[in-house]
Write a protein that binds this DNA or RNA. Sequence first.
DNA 1: GTCTATATAATGATAGAC
DNA 2: GTCTATCATTATATAGAC
Lengths: 174, 174
Amino acid sequence: MLEEGYAAVTVRRVAKSAGVSATLLHYYYATADDLLIALYSHASDKDLASLKSALAADDPLAALWAYQTDSTRTALGVEFLALANHRKSIRMKIVQFAEHARALQTKALADLIAPDSEFVPCSPVCVSMLLTSVSRNMIFESGVGISSGHAEARAFVQQTLARLKRKRMRPQPP
Amino acid sequence: MLEEGYAAVTVRRVAKSAGVSATLLHYYYATADDLLIALYSHASDKDLASLKSALAADDPLAALWAYQTDSTRTALGVEFLALANHRKSIRMKIVQFAEHARALQTKALADLIAPDSEFVPCSPVCVSMLLTSVSRNMIFESGVGISSGHAEARAFVQQTLARLKRKRMRPQPP
DNA sequence: GTCTATATAATGATAGAC
DNA sequence: GTCTATCATTATATAGAC
């Protein structure tokens, strides 16, 4: 899927790379869509674990950005999104996971960024959406060989995240 | 391509929707890749005209953002990018156009935004890359039904662009 | 130029042996 | 469970009539 796109993931090829016959895959997964859903389920479980681990790290903002810019994970995610675009059977699962991941990030970001430190305010859900946008596009473009502005965007995001970071305070007296 | 993805654009289906036989298409376009290249060439010519028109508008920053968030144009662009990801024959043309469009935007932005008005500096090429990222992801997600953070991100971009806008000055004395 | 007919390969899915 | 064999469909591409 990473190398040739979602359209290259066929029952026969998955079966071959798993060393079994195509019929056996049909035995476990009645349709090709069922197989893709199972693949996505596996990938999204891994994603969710990585995301939760990042949000629990020492520097959650930096870890979140590292999670977002993991090229394998993000490239796979984009491929599944493209798949969702014209395979309605698996669209719902992908949308659900995307919304769930964004909600998790939003909730975490509410505690991680200072609410009033920005000239133009950007809410937690806005930060989550922007981070996802930049990383997805950067990984996607890198995959085909586009690189203009990538280093600058990466530096900008990192500096902005550092600036947004809420300073940890001692517990306030009541 | 918009409704079913790039994989649905086959010689047969294009021929049928054009009311001719598939063989006739092969007469004009030897291979399926040649056909896709011709389709992309047509689409990118239109894109380039729209971009140049936007950059020559009264409010180029607002027009650029309108260009970037044109859903048909952007969704098609994303589809071609996905195609480039695993059809090497047309990858080069797509990369060339993407780099060209980014360079055009970068050059225009250098005159449109104030260089030192930002807390964390973001160069013109960085602005171009970020705008493309946000619009692409917003359109892409909207297409499958993801919408969290979209309104916030859109408002943030518009406010930020307004704030970045370089005030037009009278010609300076030498 | 434009067509019908066809060669070849790959797809999803099923029947039925073991 | 796991396999071979097979069907129907669709893809790219070509041969050859007109």
